[in-house]
Nucleic acid binder design. Structure first.
Lengths: 206, 206
DNA sequence: TGACAATCCGGAACAATGTTCCGTATCGTC
DNA sequence: GACGATACGGAACATTGTTCCGGATTGTCA
């Protein structure tokens, strides 16, 4: 995820100080994200890393890139868990539910991540896209399997489901009365159509 | 909702210009909220109303108060619709579903309102509280009725449900691929216990 | 080693927005 | 018409994001 270009014959490798600063920034970002959330002021991260503002913007033009680098491996782990669960779980539905659980765990344990994913904020647009691009196909695969096995109703869009689950995770840290897992549980229960019950589709009038 | 105090013998009524400005601000806020969303810059509303910044802060110390005044009657209408639907609808479950539909309609047609309700932002904390304080009891009544009639599983918390539905509405205006109604439909389907299908066709939404 | 060019750094500077504060204008009353 | 209470306007300050460029650092080559 952090390689220098290769296509156009890199005449020189990145300078040592640049590499050092990138590492410092990643460490600092991880610390600050954990302490103040992914929406912490850029200045705070720069200060923590001991670099200037220009430096952070040069290495990571958008906040998203920083978040992706910091949490990227967890996103990848989540993506990889899909096919694995499909093999290991007792049924496709079980696999799907376990995967959703894992995703929810990931999102709600990262301070402010749920809010960021739901936000319309420009700086988070690409973060949003990254998460969804990476995970929607995985979710779709699980969904298809469960559908093919007749365990869930058909016609559920993986993108909407992921987005919905992410949204449900919003607010868990500032609202003690709200437990996202309860609502995600309700949502996934709604997934299992009691076969004939698909006769009551929400009167979707987009 | 806009009366002068009465308990401590108001020696003087509010000045005419104050009343005039409050009205102007409300009109301006309604226009700006519709055009730019409930998170529009305060300055924009002040400019639209033709008043200074100090004036808007004096009349409405927080953005919430402005939003509440502008959308208050719709919240009240939503609150009032609960008991009415309980009487008119074919079943408590139908009443609940219709009410949820109405709430979703309200939220997603107000530019940025869903995001504001979900936000952790300080300025929206009280807005959030107002909506929930007003509507959770109504939702709870509908939920109880549907539960008593055996149409839905028990143990669902009205607060969490309202919060969850609000969250699901986030992002609908910036994400063409996401239709909150689909996910709300899934959530409400999850409400219904396993077998007991109410069999009542979806009543037309408001 | 010394010099040079490519690279990178730091932080000032600007923009957008929220919020506070106070000198001044307006209003209502006597 | 005068006077005190009330309300107004917007300057001023704080926070955060983002851009830009003079100057420092690095790597290479003689």
């Amino acid at each position: 995820m952090t390689e220098q270009g290769s296509a156009t014959s890199p005449r020189r490798a990145r300078r040592a100080d640049a590499q050092r600063n990138e590492r410092r920034l990643l460490d600092a970002a991880a610390a600050v994200f954990a302490a103040s959330g992914v929406d912490a002021p850029i200045r705070e991260i720069a200060a923590e890393a001991g670099v200037g503002l220009g430096t952070i913007y040069r290495h990571f033009p958008t906040r998203t890139e920083l978040v992706v680098e910091v949490y990227g491996h967890q996103v990848e782990a989540c993506a990889a868990a899909g096919p694995r669960l499909l093999t290991e779980a007792a049924s496709p539905l079980d696999a799907l539910l376990a995967w959703v659980d894992q995703f929810v765990d990931f999102v709600i344990t990262k301070h402010g991540l749920a809010d960021a994913l739901g936000s319309d904020d420009t700086g988070f647009q690409r973060l949003h896209a990254y998460f969804l691009d990476r995970l929607v196909p995985v979710c779709a695969e699980l969904l298809d399997a469960a559908e093919s096995s007749g365990q869930i109703a058909s016609g559920v869009d993986a993108y909407e489901l992921m987005r919905g689950i992410g949204n449900l995770c919003i607010g868990h840290e500032t609202d003690a009365r709200y437990n996202p897992r309860h609502m995600v549980g309700l949502l996934t229960r709604g997934l299992r159509g009691s076969g004939a019950d698909s006769s009551t589709p929400p009167s979707a009038s987009a």
